[in-house]
Design a binder for these strands. Sequence first.
DNA 1: TCGGTACTTTACCAACTGGTTAATTAACCA
DNA 2: TGGTTAATTAACCAGTTGGTAAAGTACCGA
Lengths: 113, 113
Amino acid sequence: MPTAELTEDERLDETFAALANSTRRAILARLATGEANVGELAEPFDLSMPAISKHLAVLERAGLISRGQRAQYRPCTLTPEPLEAVATWTEYYRPVWEARFDRLGDYLADIQP
Amino acid sequence: MPTAELTEDERLDETFAALANSTRRAILARLATGEANVGELAEPFDLSMPAISKHLAVLERAGLISRGQRAQYRPCTLTPEPLEAVATWTEYYRPVWEARFDRLGDYLADIQP
DNA sequence: TCGGTACTTTACCAACTGGTTAATTAACCA
DNA sequence: TGGTTAATTAACCAGTTGGTAAAGTACCGA
């Protein structure tokens, strides 16, 4: 079958949706320290294995992780390209939130004698 | 009533969920250029007004916009603090995706005679 | 006071999400 | 071969999401 062929917008939709869950963000944080199997990833959570499997499927579909196979194990690794896209998207708005400090700077300048 | 009292994780959940929709991201992009009424925000989209109202409610609940009132109009403005939180969250992973280039650098160094 | 404009609320719908338990697949090991 | 371990798939469920059409609210202006 052909590779999904998503638009940039659709890829951002999937990435943001995948990140909108603290279990999945915690899994990414764990993977930032290195590869891990599904069981190791599941251990910190009070969730069934199928629940973790589903979270991993969401992360994989969003391109945030990739999965290998070693015997019965499915080692997961972080693939951070979508995070880079999020950073790029977000940086566009940096001037907007920094304007607040600019205005604060103006204010501080104003009250100087 | 007391302000929602969400954890940092819950606020990130809401922010990422709000951003996981291209209509809402387009609305934010529009608001980055300045305040706008609901009708003005709806104009570029082939969606009913209630649909836009719902998107704005999601953005407001996530703290990404705030809404005023001027006669019949509800002017919306961008409130970028949650975007700053997203940037902070994302920057944590920057070394991970930049490691790719580091490794590329190692590789290029290796193949030098 | 009455009509129009701007927007929200309500009621409804189909599709998706996040969880469960039970069953299945696949690989190792004794 | 048969049992154990690792993980996925299937079937199900309640709650949320993204959309609609229709009704309601609120303000302005003639």
